[in-house]
Amino acid sequence: MTVRFDVNGRRAEVAVEPRTSLADCLRHHLGLTGTHLACEHGVCGACTVLVDGEAVRSCLMLAVQAEGRSVVTVEGLSNDAALSPLQAAFRRHHALQCGFCTPGMITTAHALLTEEPDADADRIREVLSGNLCRCTGYVGIVEAVLEARAAYRGHKADAAS
């Protein structure tokens, strides 16, 4: 089947088998290998992407279900020039080691802070409890997301003005 959707602001048109997950489509058909698969059964959160702005597990969504939607991956939240404030906070707080869960953490935290830039530590922990990390023990990740809130608050104020 052919599926058409926006990926990181660009139009994509891909021929996939219906059984292809959105994650496999992004990785293997579109070359966006920043989206990682660590369980393929909806537990670990490594494959989290944004669909119409909402964080979803791309292993639990068929590529054909993305028809007409707007998908953003970790690559879409990145640029060459500099780390985003969220990424820089992750680096500063040593919120990653092996880096495998990191794209899912970034996309999830981005969705959360975009919607709730005042999320407190408990809310951040609650939301990130859907993303497994085996290296860090999460302490640095929570600190990083807490610190990054400031940048999202500014962003929200800009959007409102």
């Binding site: 966006l32 680096r91 880096g99 990191t102 794209p103």
Partner: peptide, 9 residues
């Protein structure tokens, strides 16, 4: 981190 954070590992 520069590559991992951008999904470029």
């Amino acid at each position: 981190d520069l590559r991992f954070l951008r999904g470029r590992g």
